[in-house]
Design a protein around this nucleic acid. Structure first.
Length: 491
RNA sequence: GCCCCAUUCGUCUAGUGGCCCAGGACGUGGCCCUCUCAAGGCCAAAACAGCGGUUCGAGUCCGCUAUGGGGCACCA
């Protein structure tokens, strides 16, 4: 039992990685890195019907983006390859045939129509029809060239127990197990066969997979026993549930929170929404596992040092999206300036803004605590990178003010901004506060109308710093534009 | 329907029989700061699903019930 640790993540190439799969990959990776073992990526593409071209690239790109590197697998190779199941079909066939030769499996000639009818009549599993075929009937089918599948002979009585590293023993009555298909009529293996054969020949030491696989664990135990192979240690990770409490998130295309907000499910959706890989990793680590010491925020290095199976919580949980938002904000606040500038610059550029890098560096302190997801930069700083803004009259005119008051205040502000010698945040603040008093306005009114004039937003970063970064000319132009708006619009 | 897994604040979790009239975090509410919004600081409300056992003692062990989830394919 003291094999070197070799764990694997074995997704099917049916599209982009979903967040549940990412969490499974992450835990496997953490376990490998913690133990100094190997993390293997294996592609389980045995269902030709569900194969989506390009999926493998999507999966590898996603893992790399998160920083989950694999020691063996597609693109990196390894001694146990190939790591794509469709390239290993001869192996599966060989071992399926071996089981038939040993009398532990059999050819089943049942048509899909017969199987459908069986299911419709309420039969669970397979009715063992071909298990008990006479030698003559079998020969007849062969002579006829009938297509067949290979089914496993499940024990009819007794019990099967599998030890789960985080749940303890799981025991089922063998009578509830069925003669599952190992090799399909198209010559491809089913998940069960391919998985067991590969885990054995790739010398996988620990299987860490999602909870939804628990029912197949006893089935796989039987398969290992039939082959006479040692079964890897196994642990089933809790599933991540949809926040609205209906079903697991992993399988859904869209999840929803209680207030109806849609929850991203695929990894690329998180990426597009402006979540950082570091935040996603930290976040996912906190679902079903906890760092301890009452800590919620920790680095990957710290996690690797501490990660172990004994701290895994067996209960499934809902996806706490709000916590991800918060955590992403934490990482945004801690990120190195040049890196953050690059990321935010990309977002702005993608949204069509002409980004001035130097200006972005300058204004970063203003928006950093206000950005949670990278996309927020557009709302917080977009107005810095346009030639003109377009406030509405309604936003411009503050509470308890009319157009004439507003016009006068703007004119005074214009004169001040145009004439002041001290165009610094401190200087502007002192001068504008004084002016606000002289005009008999509350600062919330005066600063509010200036904010709208300069940014076309009611909510924006601090006013005076904003003015400095905007520059005197831009400020004057925008104040003038606001004045023009007041004149041009009939009251 | 059958089988399996789980069950601590709204949510993610700590808790491995006495340190728990249950700790942290997100979220929520209040206060402070304040030119708006954040960030930050302080404070507050908020949970051991229920019932039986075992034990001197149970959130922690056992059973039943309830609830949630998963699985019952020539899909993984």
């Amino acid at each position: 039992m003291d094999h070197p640790v070799r764990v694997r993540f074995a997704p099917s190439p049916t599209g982009p990685l979903h967040i549940g799969g990412v969490r499974t990959a992450l835990f496997n990776w953490l376990y490998a890195r913690h133990t100094g073992g190997k993390f293997i990526l294996r592609i389980e593409d045995t269902d030709q019907a569900r194969y989506v071209p390009g999926s493998i690239e999507l999966i590898t790109d996603g893992l790399r983006w998160l920083g989950l590197d694999w020691d063996e697998g597609p693109e990196v190779g390894g001694e146990y390859g190939p790591y794509i199941q469709s390239e290993r079909t001869a192996l599966y066939r060989q071992w399926a045939d071996w089981l038939v030769d040993q009398g532990k499996a059999y050819r089943c000639y049942c048509t899909s129509e017969r199987l459908d009818n069986l299911r419709k009549s309420g039969v669970q599993g397979y009715d063992l029809h071909c298990r008990t075929l006479s030698t003559e009937d079998r020969a007849a089918h062969e002579a006829n060239g009938d297509s067949y599948v290979i089914r496993f002979k499940m024990p009819l009585d007794g019990q099967t127990t599998v030890h789960d590293l985080i749940r303890g023993d799981i025991t089922v009555e063998n009578s509830t197990l069925t003669d599952l298909v190992l090799l399909k009529s198209d010559g491809f293996p089913t998940y069960h066969l391919a998985n067991v054969v590969d885990d054995h020949f790739m010398e996988i030491s620990h299987i860490l997979r999602a909870e939804e696989w628990i029912p197949t664990a006893p089935v796989h135990r039987q398969l290992y026993d039939a082959f006479g192979w040692e079964m890897p240690a196994i642990a089933h990770l809790p599933v991540i549930l949809n926040p609205n409490g209906r079903g697991k998130l992993s399988k859904r295309t869209v999840g929803f929170t209680e207030d109806g907000r849609s929850v991203p499910v695929r990894l690329n959706e998180f990426r597009e929404a402006g979540y950082l890989p570091e935040a996603i990793v930290n976040f996912l680590t906190n679902i079903g596992w906890s760092f301890g010491e009452d800590r919620e925020v920790f680095s990957v290095a710290e996690t690797i040092e501490r990660f172990d199976l004994s701290r895994i919580n067996p209960a499934g949980g809902k996806f706490p999206l709000e916590k991800l938002d918060w955590l992403n904000g934490v990482y945004v606040r801690e990120m190195a300036t040049d890196k953050l500038v690059a990321l935010l610059g990309e977002r702005l550029a993608a949204a069509g803004y002409r980004v001035d890098q130097a200006k972005l560096v300058e204004l970063l302190p203003l928006i950093r605590p206000r950005v949670q997801r990278l996309d927020d930069v557009i709302e917080k700083a977009g107005f810095f990178f346009v030639d003109a803004v377009h406030p509405t009259l309604n936003d411009l005119i503050q509470k308890q003010m009319d157009a004439a008051d507003t016009q006068r205040a703007l004119q005074e502000a214009y004169d001040l901004v145009a004439g002041t010698d001290d165009f610094s945040a401190e200087g502007l603040e002192v001068a504008l506060r004084t002016l606000s008093d002289e005009l008999g306005l509350k600062t919330s009114q005066f600063f509010g109308l200036l904010r709208v004039a300069l940014t076309a937003q009611q909510v924006a970063p601090p006013l005076f710093e904003t003015m400095v970064i905007l520059g005197r000319e831009a400020c004057l132009a925008r104040i003038q534009a606001a004045q023009a708006l007041l004149v041009d619009t009939p009251v």
